[in-house]
Design a binder for these strands. Structure first.
Lengths: 225, 225
DNA sequence: GGCGCAATTGTGCAAGTGTATAATCGCGGC
DNA sequence: GCCGCGATTATACACTTGCACAATTGCGCC
């Protein structure tokens, strides 16, 4: 006997109508909903019910496409990180020119929306504990982190100035400046003028590697004079 | 002392023995347990039961000293941040000497344990969402952040090199380098040699502000040659 | 020594959690 | 048309969560 039942008089409860989307679409919807929730309220806000509601689906469907909540969250993290690095590589490939101009474009792209955004920072922070705990998530982290830094290191190695033995340390330092400015600029956007963070990044990385990145960026039209 | 423990089966269940600690002690214990749990597993790991267990008390006591879980977590965040800035100010006051040496000591102190530690980073990340959501937590954040950066700005202003109009941008950039290196060094400690991060920080901040901080640090005994 | 206060415990509860599984029904293939 | 598969929903369950509140008991004070 069906206990429950708020069957109002007459009709009987009909289950909600739905459409059969493809697997790719549904996975994308669920991952998107997960990212939105983690950005807003951290991992604890990304409950299966909240995710399902945001994706316009019922909770049971999550288990149909993912092994469980943890698996879905891991997939969301992977998509986030790969999205960032892919966008970055794409921005880099679009720029030809001198090594200075290419490095300048790379730096500036990291210090502007959509990469430098509060949502991205809070997402990153929200996933940090999972990176620490889950080996598979940590593998994703290490992979994407090193991909980014290797790209930066290659750009620095192309510069005329640095000696080969210093390139690694310069890449670490440059990466750190970018990370730190990315954090500050995203968390306290009102504390800085438009493109002020990008400009400071170009000046600072430029001084560290011994190149005039700000000038190169202006010449290439990456920022305005 | 009664070694407490559940006496063997049979007897009636007596409630566990306890001691009446002072309010200050109990609050400190609860805050310490909260910080430990957030560092390990994020905010979601800091449940009232887990906190109470770690602090060696029962969950009900939390409500006796704090208005609720959220209030306790806010208090823990305040203690964490004030502890960091206090320790930093103290380390700075202990160093006399040239402006370069003082700035060098300040930079190096931020890029070594106990400040540069994975626990601190994960704590900071764990609280980030609460900073975003809760106005009172955000006030604590802004206060401690600006205290740190103002101190750095004052140190840079004491240097002979920089022009007054540049000090603000230099402080932002220097702070960013420190933040970024702090992140990298804490998250991936195995990727760097001992004091490599501190040395890179001194070189990088030095180039940004136009001073030989590494040399000053070596002269002052802050790092070894 | 014992009284009394309040620090501390224990229990209970309603709401929320992830997951398992049965029941339904959209929709492509015939 | 309609048949059947599987995408999707609905329901159930065991467990955890934060919180309220009464019962207990350590311990300062007379």
């Amino acid at each position: 006997m069906t206990v429950d039942g708020q069957d109002a008089a007459g009709g009987g409860q009909d289950r909600r109508a739905f459409r059969r989307e493809g697997e790719a679409q549904r996975r994308a919807d669920l991952i998107g909903a997960t990212l939105a929730l983690v950005a807003e309220g951290g991992l604890e806000a990304a409950t299966v019910r909240a995710i399902a509601a945001r994706a316009g689906v019922t909770p049971g469907l999550i288990r149909h496409y993912f092994a469980g909540r943890e698996d879905l969250i891991r997939a969301a993290y992977a998509q986030l990180m790969h999205g960032i690095t892919d966008a970055n590589a794409q921005a880099l490939d679009a720029v030809a020119g001198s090594p200075e101009a290419r490095l300048a474009a790379f730096v500036a792209a990291s210090l502007r929306p959509p990469v430098m955004a509060l949502d991205v920072v809070t997402l990153w922070a929200g996933f940090l504990h999972m990176v620490r705990r889950d080996p598979r998530t940590r593998a994703i982290h290490a992979e994407t982190y090193h991909a980014y830094r290797d790209r930066l290191e290659a750009l620095i190695a192309d510069l005329p100035g640095p000696e080969p033995g210093q390139v690694r340390a310069l890449a670490i330092a440059g990466n750190a400046v970018i990370d730190g400015l990315w954090l500050e600029g995203a968390i306290l956007p009102d504390s800085f003028g438009p493109d002020e963070i990008a400009r400071i990044g170009l000046q600072s990385v430029g001084r560290i590697v011994g190149a005039d990145l700000e000038g190169a960026a202006i010449a290439a039209g990456v920022i305005t004079a």
